[in-house]
């Protein structure tokens, strides 16, 4: 077994290495931003907008659900574009860029002409206004497509 003083010395050297490498990584990452394996891990560092937006499906009863809760879509327009929201107020503000894109991938893979077991629904761009008060934030929906959808089997 290593004797005490030797172990303490090694710990001291490891301590110098740890702090020197940590400071160097921090400084280098601040410089390059993100270049593997250096990262400033700056995701979501910007101040958020006061509105949040998300694509959802709203059924005939008015209940909202995720697009991924359905596995069949027959819509007008036939291939809805989830990022075409210029007609919606306040435009495309408040969303995370990759979220509608990932939902678009899912939607495009599940467009079908098989109408069996489908129900009426709307694909909407829902926007919440975030205020500094307790309670549910106010929201408004902007229709992107009118569809018949088939709920995914549980």
């Amino acid at each position: 077994m290593s004797s005490g003083p030797y172990r303490d010395e090694r710990r001291a050297r490891a301590g110098v290495a740890a702090w020197a490498i940590a400071i160097a990584y921090l400084l280098a990452a601040r410089g390059v931003g993100n270049f593997f394996p250096l990262s400033a891990f700056g995701m979501y560092a910007g101040r958020s907008p006061d509105v949040a937006s998300r694509v959802l499906v709203v059924g005939a009863s008015g209940e909202a659900a995720e697009i991924t809760a359905f596995d069949g879509f027959s819509c007008a327009p036939s291939w809805p574009k989830l990022d075409e929201v210029r007609h919606c107020a306040p435009g495309d503000q408040g969303h995370v860029e990759y979220v509608p894109r990932d939902l678009q991938v899912y939607l495009d893979a599940h467009v079908t002409s098989d109408a069996a077991g489908m129900e009426d629904a709307h694909i909407v761009w829902r926007t919440w206004t975030l205020e500094d008060r307790p309670g549910p934030p106010a929201s408004q929906d902007c229709e992107l497509a009118s569809c018949r959808v088939r709920r995914r089997a549980p």
């Binding site: 921090l26 700056g42 560092a45 101040r47």
Partner: peptide, 28 residues
Amino acid sequence: VGSALSKLFVSGFGWVNPSQIRWLVLSQ
């Protein structure tokens, strides 16, 4: 530590606000 510093450099202590986390949850 770099992640915290990124937030402080970009948004300052204003990152601690009532909308930041709510926006993240609602938009995700």
